[in-house]
């Protein structure tokens, strides 16, 4: 890492009581040439120097278009993927270079909920076996016995405890997602990474699961990293939101600020593209249409990666990578020409 990076991107909101601190984390996937030699020809910079922190009980939303690296970011900070660079601290401890084995005790503290409730549960295991698996892996023996504990958790997430011996295929999509949630909270973790947890569900079921996640957060002081492409769900559930584009965090701030006074042109375009479930507001909505498609992450544009689609791009954006800076207290972003404050008329009168 160069000296510029050291002085540049590190100053993103360092809160004392941070549960998880992510500092300029990178994740590259090597691209190899064809043939036997598998020559290294380049890297997909899936995640490029992202920094954020999370305090207990907080929800950080990560939004962005498909291919922006939000899922890879979630998996990397969970150490399911090895970071290429940067530093990850959990409760003040550097976990960046811990081995898989060394991570095992930490898995009690950090868990994950996946998008697809159909493929993330083993079809040959009963619900009881699925939810109790974390106890077995961690060698935890609940005081009241595993079965009683599992049934307790099932009741907590809104499943019928009598269904403990059923198989996943006997449940609907929404109920399966509840099984996934039950498994994630079994060991009372402090942090859960939720990767598109409701996008496969029907609208009415989606709301049930969102409410459940909120209740569990209140009850157990859980911190969530909530990764989703549905911006209205993310806004609803998140305290802070990071907006990613081509592996970089473009802007990170309190969710109100992201939606009401975005400073980065990409955030502005993204939030303005969401159709509102209210015909009158919808007719009045002003949109910024982005031209073109996402550039290839193998060969990202020089300077600011968003400049090829940015309505405000100038020469400087091609020449110079914008550094992360603080637009307002707690409001960070990387842009040479940020939007004025309160550019969007605040819709909450």
């Amino acid at each position: 890492m160069t000296a510029v990076d050291e002085s540049g991107t590190s100053e993103v909101l360092r809160r004392e009581d941070a549960l998880l601190r992510v500092d300029r984390v990178q994740k590259y996937f090597p691209v190899t040439g064809g043939g036997v030699l598998k020559r290294h020809v380049g890297d997909v910079k899936a995640v490029e120097k992202i920094s954020f922190d999370i305090v207990p009980g907080e929800t950080l939303g990560i939004v962005g278009e498909s291919g922006c690296g939000k899922s890879t970011a979630g998996r990397t900070v969970m150490k399911l993927l090895d970071p290429t660079g940067g530093k990850i601290e959990f409760e003040g401890r550097d976990i960046t270079h811990l081995s898989r084995k060394e991570m095992v005790p930490l898995r009690r503290e950090m868990q994950m909920i996946f998008q697809d409730p159909y493929s993330s549960l083993n079809p040959r295991h009963t619900v009881g076996a699925i939810i109790s698996a974390p106890f077995k892996v961690q060698g935890v023996k609940p005081a009241r016995g595993v079965q009683a504990e599992v049934q307790d958790i099932m009741a907590r997430v809104g499943l019928n405890p009598e269904h403990i011996n059923r198989y996943p295929n006997e449940f609907s999509g929404g109920q399966r997602q509840r099984i996934g949630i039950a498994r994630a909270i079994a060991l009372r973790p402090k942090l859960i990474v939720c990767d598109e947890p409701v996008s496969a569900l029907d609208v009415s079921i989606q709301a049930q699961v969102v409410n459940l996640l909120e209740d569990l957060q209140d009850e157990f002081q859980l911190a969530y990293i909530f990764i989703a492409h549905d911006l209205s769900v993310v806004r609803h559930i998140s305290d802070r939101i990071a907006v990613m584009y081509l592996g970089r965090i473009m802007e990170i701030a309190d969710s109100e600020k992201i939606y009401e006074s975005p400073r980065h042109p990409y955030t502005h375009a993204l939030t303005s593209a969401v159709p509102l479930p209210d015909p009158k507001a919808e007719r009045a909505r002003e949109r910024i249409l982005l031209e073109g498609d996402l550039p290839s992450p193998i060969d990202p544009p020089s300077g600011c990666v968003f400049r090829t689609r940015c309505p405000k791009a100038q020469q400087r954006c091609a020449d110079e990578v914008p550094e992360v800076r603080e637009f307002a207290p707690g409001h960070f972003g990387a842009c040479h020409f940020p939007e004025e404050k309160h550019l969007i008329p605040v819709s909450v009168a």
Partner: peptide
């Protein structure tokens, strides 16, 4: 009414809770 209550409003305040439809289709 249930469908309308299930969708998060982009302009919703922090305190509002979704009102899902109970049960399954």
């Amino acid at each position: 009414l249930g469908l309308l209550g299930s969708v998060p409003r982009m302009s919703a305040g922090e305190t509002s809770r979704l009102e899902p439809i109970p049960g399954q289709p």
